[in-house]
C-alpha cells in the first residue's frame, strides 16, 4: 500500500494570461503505515499536492501511483481510489449537510454502494473512533460545538474505511483542548489501526510530536524530506521560507551557543528536558 508521486507538475490556468506554477517536479514515495507531516507556507502547494493523491486534481504532467497502479490510466476507478485515500479538507465541518449526525456520516459509505447494514455499522464504528457516542446520532450537525462538528466531518471520511488518511490542517480554529483531542484520535488511528497518515499542519510542535517523516514544500517544490529532527536542524532555511522550527529547538540552540553540552537534534520539550537535566548533573 504505497503512494508514489513521480515528476508531478501542476499549472493553474494553463494557457491563459494568469497561468501559474503550483507544483514543480515533485517526487516521493509514502509507504504503508507511515505518519508523514507536510508543511509549507501558505501558497506553497501543499493543498494542491494532497488533492492529487486522491485524484481530485489532475496533474499537468507527471504521474501518481497508488499500490503500483497509475491513477491516470484509462478506466482507473477514481471512486474506489477516493474510498481508499480519505481526504479531510480544511474546515471540514462546512461540508456537513444532513439533518442528523448519523446520516451525515452514512453519506460516504452509502456512495460506495454498500448494503444498509454495512453502511450503518461503518458509521457507528467511525463515530466511536472519533469519540462520539450514541447520544449524538440524532442531533443536528449544525447545533454541535466546533470541535464536535469537525469530529463528525472526520468520521464522515473514516466511515469509508480508507487505508490512507490525509488531513489538511485538522486543528485550525480549534481551542487547545479540541486540538489535542483531534490529534490524539489521529495518532491513535495510526498506532492501533496501522493507518497511513498524511498531516498538513502549521504547528511545528505537533509535527515534532507526531510525524515520523516531514516533507517541506516551498513555492511548489519539495525542499526537505526527512525525519523531523533532521529537518529542524535547517531551522534557518525554514525561517527564510516563512516557517520555523519548534520553539524548544531555539532554546536548545541558544543553550549550545552558551556552551551547554547537549545534542542539537532535540525537538520535543520532553527530550530537551531530559538532555538539559543530564547536562546539568554532569556539570
Amino acid at each position: 500500500m504505497s503512494i508514489k508521486v513521480e515528476h508531478l507538475n501542476h499549472i493553474y490556468g494553463e494557457g491563459t494570461a494568469f497561468s501559474q506554477y503550483a507544483l514543480k517536479d515533485v517526487n516521493f514515495t509514502i509507504e504503508d503505515g507511515e505518519f508523514v507531516g507536510l508543511i509549507g507556507h501558505t501558497g506553497s502547494g501543499k493543498s494542491t499536492l494532497i488533492q492529487h493523491l486522491n485524484g481530485l486534481l489532475r496533474a499537468s504532467s507527471g504521474a501518481v501511483y497508488y499500490n503500483g497502479e497509475n491513477i491516470y490510466a484509462d478506466g482507473y476507478d477514481m471512486k474506489k481510489l477516493r474510498s481508499k485515500v480519505g481526504l479531510v479538507f480544511q474546515y471540514p465541518e462546512y461540508q456537513l449537510f444532513e439533518v442528523d449526525v448519523f446520516s451525515d456520516v452514512c453519506f460516504g459509505p452509502r456512495n460506495l454502494g454498500l448494503e444498509k447494514e454495512e453502511v450503518e455499522a461503518r458509521a457507528r464504528e467511525a463515530l466511536s473512533l472519533v469519540g462520539l457516542d450514541e447520544s449524538f446520532y440524532a442531533q443536528s450537525p449544525f447545533e454541535l460545538s466546533g470541535g464536535q462538528k469537525r469530529r463528525v466531518a472526520i468520521a464522515g471520511v473514516l466511515a469509508m474505511e480508507p487505508e490512507v488518511l490525509i488531513l489538511d490542517e485538522p486543528t485550525a480554529g480549534l481551542d487547545p483542548r479540541g486540538r489535542d483531542e483531534i490529534l490524539d484520535k489521529i495518532s491513535q488511528l495510526h498506532r492501533e489501526k496501522g493507518m497511513t497518515i498524511i498531516l498538513v499542519s502549521h504547528s511545528m510542535e505537533d509535527m515534532a510530536r507526531y510525524a515520523g517523516r516531514l516533507i517541506v514544500m516551498n513555492h511548489g517544490e519539495k525542499v526537505f524530506d526527512d525525519a523531523p529532527k533532521e529537518v529542524f536542524k535547517h531551522y534557518k532555511e525554514l525561517e527564510k521560507m516563512g516557517l520555523a522550527a519548534p520553539q524548544i529547538t531555539y532554546v536548545v540552540h541558544e543553550l549550545r551557543e552558551h556552551g551547554a553540552e547537549i545534542a542539537d537534534d532535540l525537538t520535543t520539550v520532553a527530550e530537551a528536558r531530559d538532555a538539559i537535566l543530564a547536562a546539568l548533573r554532569k556539570g
Binding site: R82, F107, N111, M160
Partner: peptide
C-alpha cells in the same frame, strides 16, 4: 469548488 471536492472525496458523484 471546495464543497464539491469535499463531497467527491466522500464518494459523491
Amino acid at each position: 469548488d471546495k464543497i464539491m471536492k469535499a463531497q467527491m472525496a466522500r464518494g459523491a458523484d
